[in-house]
Nucleic acid binder design. Structure first.
Lengths: 242, 242
DNA sequence: CCAAAAGTGTTTGCTCTACACCCATGG
DNA sequence: CCATGGGTGTAGAGCAAACACTTTTGG
């Protein structure tokens, strides 16, 4: 039999169906962190410093601590590898095919995360990363492990969330124009939307308010909006797949 | 350092960021298997033979094999513990709080499953179970571990699936009356539906066909329907959260 | 013939879609 | 003054909800 019961924090002596009777896989968390900047839907990747796949781009993530909740591990790994904190986080899916990692059996619990472009502190590479970068979701480099598949899955989830909830605001800065918001929807859903219908629908939900400020650009200035505090609380509480 | 790399099927020698450097949790799969019988939404439970929680009711499940896909492990455990095979199966959520199992760190990947009442062979207790039984979801006994929470989560997912897909048929026998189908929706969604609107909507989808047979009961006989083969394939392929 | 479940249409309001022109500013 | 994106309303179609009575059988 391989391994031993390795949790010092728990006391019950192991009885008949002993954990030690079963080989144990390694378990990691990986994060798909989205943001929206310069008209692109972007995902955060790190360049791996170590084998396997040293030098390849991969999702931030790592091994769970033996006394750590899964979501805590996800938040910790993100912070350690990139310096980013306080993002919207929810569990995505668990990927566990036996051959997904050349080192052995590694099961990964993938998390889905969103950060606004303006709250996004400059990502900086942590210990396990040579570099970090934001990549356009529709133009990704070759990825380590099955991370391409994980990102595809996360993009589907994001589309779904945008169609059925108002979580789009998490991707944008605090203030934004309606055209910017529409652009988020168009880029994520990959379809063109009618301007008048989009505005009517989004305003009818009563979750936006004018900030009173204007964005000055090359031409006619646009009114700036923000999501109301009430709407933000409501959406965060809702989480249809917590 | 605890443990060793324990996957004999894979060959790459472990390089720098070694799996052996991290303590490994145990990983199990648990299944929430639903069916619908006698007007009740029911879930399959087994009575545990071993500690911890010996004698308590729990979800069928067990440790994953080290070379086994997660979904395969779920199907295998279900078969071993109950003799049931060939069910609709999809991943539900991964529960991994550090204190959810008194034996130590055990992460469980929960699966969501549905079987028709008629295909359901008599469940028989396997090696790890003293007994098995179908329980009304709305009248459950005390459950082992965090299995109550897992079932709640699965019921939410089932409601969701019924509202947005036509997966209700998986819960019923091959032939059923429209009133029986409506009753599935009412019991799962916990709301009363209008008979005429329900029938119109479900028939408009074009996924049902008359079998030509009738169900004779106490009173006026009801026409029997089945789902068309095309509709079944379509729904299985769709899986919005695969 | 009575009890009980099966079966059947219409009206109304709401939501979604398609669609085109004027406005305000910077250069 | 012109180029550019910002901003606005309406008509028609399709969908969802409310609502009550007749039919068929078993006992």
């Amino acid at each position: 039999m391989l391994g031993t019961v390795n949790d010092p924090a728990l006391s019950t002596p192991a009885p008949s169906s002993n954990l030690a009777d079963y080989p144990r896989p390694s378990v990691t968390v990986d994060l798909v962190l989205f943001t929206f900047a310069e008209g692109e839907l972007r995902v955060l990747l790190i360049k791996r410093k170590h084998e396997p796949y040293a030098g390849a781009w991969a999702l931030p993530g790592g091994f769970i601590g033996i006394d750590e909740k899964l979501e805590e591990a996800a938040a910790r790994e993100l912070y350690e590898e990139t310096g980013i904190r306080d993002v919207y986080l929810e569990q995505l899916y668990t990927f566990g095919d036996p051959d997904r990692d050349p080192r052995g059996r590694v099961i990964t619990v993938a998390y889905f995360a969103i950060v606004s472009a303006d709250l996004m502190p400059e990502a900086h590479a942590g210990d396990d990363a040579e570099d970090t970068g934001w990549f356009n979701v529709y133009a990704l480099p070759q990825l380590a492990f099955d991370h391409g598949r994980i990102i595809n899955y996360a993009v589907q989830r994001l589309r779904y969330k945008l169609e059925y909830t108002a979580l789009g605001f998490l991707l944008l800065p605090e203030e934004f124009t309606l055209s910017e918001l529409q652009s988020v929807y168009e880029v994520v859903l990959q379809e063109k939307l009618d301007k008048r219908n989009f505005r009517r629908k989004i305003l009818a939900q009563g979750i936006l308010e004018k900030t009173g400020r204007l964005r000055y650009g090359d031409h006619r200035p646009a009114k700036l909006y923000r999501f109301t505090a009430a709407a933000i609380e409501l959406e965060k509480a809702r989480r249809r797949f917590p």
